[in-house]
């Protein structure tokens, strides 16, 4: 299965996956079945925009505008991050 997101794909966190504050270590952490992943600033910025309503293209455009960075570069980073999560079943995608 090709896990690359199309521009119109809308990613979402499936049931059993959520982002929470880590009140002991600081920062935010992605909690998934039997796994906890500390999010860096980039991961946190990406997942903060994953609502189930926003498309991949909209998320990339928002990040590019917010961080004043080229869309092509952002798109590549977001794609790599999201494909990694999809391979572990931590991210769902609606067309």
């Amino acid at each position: 299965m090709n896990l690359v997101l199309a521009p119109t794909d809308r990613p979402y966190l499936p049931r059993g996956v959520r982002v929470v504050e880590d009140r002991v270590r600081g920062g935010r952490v992605l909690l998934a079945p039997e796994k906890a992943i500390a999010l860096d600033a980039i991961g946190d910025a990406i997942l903060g925009r994953v609502t189930g309503a926003a498309s991949f293209a909209e998320i990339v455009a928002d990040l590019a505008a917010t961080y004043d960075a080229p869309e092509a570069q952002i798109s590549e980073d977001v794609q790599r991050f999201m494909v990694g999560l999809r391979a572990r079943m931590f991210l769902g995608v609606k067309p």
């Binding site: 929470v20 880590d22 002991v24 270590r25 952490v29 909690l31 039997e34 796994k35 906890a36």
Partner: peptide, 9 residues
């Protein structure tokens, strides 16, 4: 949880 545990099995 106060100690930093995130996952409980």
């Amino acid at each position: 949880a106060d100690l930093g545990v995130l996952q409980l099995h």
